[in-house]
Nucleic acid binder design. Structure first.
Lengths: 146, 146
DNA sequence: CACGAAGTGGGGAAAAGTGGGGAGAATGAG
DNA sequence: CTCATTCTCCCCACTTTTCCCCACTTCGTG
């Protein structure tokens, strides 16, 4: 389980240190790719496995082809150096608009990486906002279960 | 599993370097052919085998005959030189409109090769687009499973 | 305050990618 | 059949990128 928010530097070579608490839980075969709302997502192998149903073949529909290309095209296996850092590719940094600082956030089953602005926008919430969103999700679930 | 996007030069002889990460996973018997949306596709032997359900016979429907002719007719075995490059034939370069630059993209089970423009259209996505397409495919799957 | 663990920065060897020259096979014309 | 031209493919040399290693700083803990 990944919990907590960390602010780390990104150096000129695109390297970011993954917090030690997270790293301990990440076996080899961990994948990083694009995520919704402009973040990057780090998938431990068992989580990534769920995304792999998506394959290309002569019978794959158009939208799935598109998603597969974007998702796998942006993905890389995480390779940690001796200091526990991974390299974010130029693509990945551009997509997430990350230059010198990254926010690394544990979100239960996976890890997200955000730039300064987007994280402030998405992650920080006033008590009022927080309450409103909680109610919204509850409402939606009630509607679906019927 | 093929992951990531690479931008490589195509020289005057039509040669492109296949990224080392991909090359390691490509045994001999790898096939390159035409793909949807104007890309070229590189099939490792086991993936190519899956496409071979497509056969010509007296009961083959018309569209399948057409697809089989195009797909198998355009196919070639990949031959790597000592630097890890393959030669794209004049046909293949024309089909994919590739001149001096190629984008080489790992899409889970196979590899695609694109020209600049087409890749920019299909593969690069703003966070908004990416989020929308992800939601669309998720929605579609949810609908199908009921 | 001292010690250890975690994070940051940079230099250098090794690997990957790029471009061109030239030998040998294939093709086509005389 | 011979010769010339083209094309393929192999080899070598150069450039760029990657990644491995070392050293310093910062933070948290006892």
């Amino acid at each position: 389980m990944f919990l907590g928010t960390y602010r780390h530097a990104v150096d000129t070579k695109g390297r970011v240190a993954i917090p030690a608490r997270f790293r301990e839980q990440l076996p080899s075969g961990t994948i990083i790719s694009k995520g919704a709302e402009g973040c990057l997502q780090v998938y431990p192998p068992q989580e990534w496995g769920m995304e792999q149903g998506l394959r290309l073949g002569s019978t794959t529909p158009a939208e799935e082809r598109r998603l597969a290309r974007m998702m796998f095209g942006a993905a890389r296996e995480c390779e940690f150096d001796a200091q526990g850092r991974i390299v974010l590719s130029a693509d990945q940094r551009q997509y997430a608009a990350i230059s010198t600082v990254a926010w690394i956030v544990g979100v239960n089953n996976l890890i997200e990486i955000w730039n300064d602005d987007n994280w402030r926008h998405i992650g920080e919430a006033t008590p009022e906002e927080y309450t409103r969103i909680q109610d919204q999700v509850a409402e939606r679930r009630r509607a679906q279960s019927t």
